[in-house]
């Protein structure tokens, strides 16, 4: 029997200033059965929602008015004022060049989705966030989901041992 995801149990926040892009994500989530979906245009509005409601997953555009998506992510992950440092964030962006992906990854993004995207790509990111949660890593310079997705054999010294 296949495992299923009941999207009605999850609350979403879409942060996107582009009306059409936000609508596409909203329609997709609504079709999947999500009943609690909030839409805002700016990070400041997003923080207001995150402080007043229980949100499980944030879907955020990189290019936003005022504070951009990366700054928003930085505050979420690293600020003492963050409403929830562990919240999964799916970053949507038309900046799909490698340097953008690595920048977002190093700031603690959970999933990255390059635009233009299709339904399959969006769904796979949602599944990954919900069904395959990753452990978090906290170092002096990074706080976010484990960036090592694949477990490969490594013969070198273990520099990630737990604190003694």
């Amino acid at each position: 029997m296949n495992a299923k995801i009941d999207f009605s149990k999850i609350s979403f926040l879409i942060v996107d200033g582009d009306k059409i892009s936000a609508q596409v994500v909203y329609d997709t989530l609504a079709y999947l059965g999500a009943s609690h979906i909030q839409r805002v245009k700016t990070p400041n509005d997003a923080f207001d929602v995150l402080r007043s409601e229980k949100i499980d997953i944030v879907v955020c555009e990189w290019r936003l008015r005022g504070m951009d998506g990366l700054e928003f992510l930085d505050v979420m992950r690293n600020s003492t004022n963050s409403p929830n440092r562990f919240i999964p964030v799916i970053m949507l962006t038309a900046h799909s060049e490698h340097r953008y992906v690595t920048t977002a990854r190093d700031l603690g993004i959970t999933e990255f989705l390059a635009k233009p995207f299709n339904a399959k790509a969006l769904y796979s990111r949602l599944v990954s966030v919900i069904a395959r949660p990753r452990r978090f890593i906290n170092t002096g310079t990074y706080f976010g989901p484990d960036r090592r997705r694949r477990q490969v054999q490594f013969d070198g010294p273990d520099r990630r041992s737990l604190d003694e």
């Binding site: 296949n2 299923k4 995801i5 997953i57 599944v127 919900i130 949660p133 906290n138 604190d163």
Partner: peptide, 30 residues
């Protein structure tokens, strides 16, 4: 070798526990 101070925090499984099941919803592999 100096060991870096790294804190490994177990994955948050709350979402998975709430939403993943075998009865209701969309298949993980559509």
């Amino acid at each position: 070798m100096k060991k870096k101070n790294v804190q490994i925090i177990p994955a948050q499984t709350d979402l998975k526990r709430r939403a993943v099941n075998f009865v209701k919803g969309f298949d993980i592999n559509l």
